[in-house]
Amino acid sequence: MMRLIARLDVKNEFVIKGIHLEGLRKIGDPNELARRYYQQGIDEIVFMDAVASLYDRNNLFEVIEAACRDVFIPITLGGGLRSLGDIEAALKAGADKVAINTAAVRNPGLIAEAARHFGSQCIVASIEAKKQASDDWEAYIDNGREKTGIEVTGWTKKLQDLGAGEIFLTSIDREGTRRGFDLQLSKAVNEAVSIPVIASGGCGRPDHITALADVTAPSAVALASVLHYGTHSIFEVKQAMAACGLAVRELAA
């Protein structure tokens, strides 16, 4: 069953949305949106702290604590988590999983230590990928702001070997554009590893998901704009997926 994940990028107290992870526009209250998407049948929620490396994170811990009072599906927290202590605090606040990008690039050992400590199931390795040439993508950190010189598919394999339980893959080129997923990137990463891959960035219509599924079958897709701007309901997205033969979790009628 392909999971549909709502991606909520949070800056200070607001869910924001940009294009290519930049140019931010305020969308709404994180908890209100999480509740709404949960009630509409989303399978999972990811909160990404867009400025965590720059500001205090306490805000988002409070958001997580509140979310897990009335959202009874898996919740992932990403953005600015740097140490085992940060991860523990996120899990204690009520996150089921943590997504780690920048800290993994700076200190890959953190992924191995975190997987040993808390179990692979809660360690999601996050990758922000930017296309360099055909079949060549570079990993970025700090919310798409900084280059690393690291090639994405090799890095994905390394993250799997270190003990990551899932890969959260964002295409910076497609993020916020609503022009569809980077199909070749998703395919390359999905084929590089045997752990679940979540494709993120570019979904603007339900047929973008079915087009992706024609090329490769990621375990999950992340949605942001399509939900935030209300262009399609979660029900419509799942209906379209089911019509194309993709197994989805049923919606309460």
């Binding site: 069953m1 999971r3 399978d43 692979s120 199931q121 339980g165 899932e166 045997s194 752990i195 679940p196 375990s219 999950a220 979790r249």
Partner: peptide, 11 residues
């Protein structure tokens, strides 16, 4: 062979 683990998701 080729089946993804961990088994993550709805079933």
């Amino acid at each position: 062979n080729g089946v993804r683990l961990p088994h993550v998701g709805w079933n």
